[in-house]
Simulated assay, not measured.
Amino acid sequence: MAHVIDGNEVGVRIQNELSASVERLSDSGVTPGLATVLMSDDGASETYVSMKQRACEQIGIEGYHYEIGPDEPADELFDRIGELNEDPSVHGILVQMPVPDHVDEQRVLRRIDPLKDVDGFHPENVGRLVAGDPRYKPCTPHGVQRLLAAADADPAGKDVVVVGRSNIVGKPLANLLVQKADGGNATVTVCHSRTDDIAAKTLEADIVVAAAGVPELIDAEMITDGTTVIDVGVNRVDADNEKGYELAGDVDFEDVEEKAEAITPVPGGVGPMTIAMLLYNTVKAASLQEGVAIELPGQ
């Protein structure tokens, strides 16, 4: 049976270590501030934002939350971002995605001050990541790196297959893992919907990261014994329960657990790490903007 990598445990450890960094900033008169902006009435998005705000409170980050009706003009959102860019008490800005169809998502990303872009999606920050000089690593890919480290699954010299090519996970993760740096030095293959035979790739991998958004896409026949499997997927599938659905990953957990060396569950795997790394980026942003040098966990 595979070792189950507990993202909750690793995330709590990082948050506890970040608390010490927040205290050091506080000693210099700095309180890190994170602003979240929600322009949606989607229940899942509301839940994600509230979880992020609670996590901020737990380690001493000042949380600011703003809601904009999903039918409001796009300029309402852009004006709010502009105000937050100018607010010195706000060090990080996160606009919860997705935004309504009438709002240009790329314009939203470009509107955020790159120094306050704690998601790491502004073109300037993406360019720095690709160049090997990241200011802020995108939260979920960075969380995956930390989970691999926690499982003693160093990607250096290993064959890694990333299934999914999104701008949020697949592409930035591939860039992180291929870098000549700690947590990188892997040989990376990115698979996607146009890949002819995904199984042919995953069967050759030492590490498989599933981030395609397809429930239980990866099963035991697609990996070899001893593979480390990281499941980024969070999918709602119909279920006969009070909610009418349950969460499923991109990996058939029970099937793959029999063969893998290590595996992340859904929920409780990558999800908590995404929040932990958002807090990490916010603390780092406060340090950079205020000119206060601190140590961050795992640097």
Rank of each mutant, 00 (worst) to 15 (best):
I81C: 00
Q53I: 10
G249K: 06
I218P: 00
T36W: 03
T202A: 06
D240R: 03
I93D: 01
K259C: 01
G291Y: 05
A262T: 14
D113P: 12
A151E: 04
V234I: 15
V4A: 12
I207G: 09
L147M: 07
A149I: 11
L129M: 13
V126K: 02
A212W: 05
L84E: 02
T195D: 08
V209C: 05
Q96L: 05
L94V: 00
A131S: 14
Q289N: 07
A44V: 13
S166R: 02
T195Y: 06
E221R: 15
T36H: 01
D133H: 09
Q106V: 14
V292Y: 04
A35I: 00
E242Y: 09
G29V: 07
L38C: 04
V4E: 14
D225I: 08
I5S: 11
V126S: 07
G69K: 11
D250C: 08
E17A: 15
R24Q: 10
C191G: 06
S50K: 13
L94D: 00
E9W: 05
E221F: 07
K180N: 15
D154L: 05
T282G: 01
T187C: 01
E9C: 12
P88I: 09
Y136T: 06
T31F: 02
V208T: 08
N167W: 02
G11H: 09
K137H: 11
G11S: 15
T189A: 12
E124D: 14
P114K: 05
G92C: 06
G183E: 09
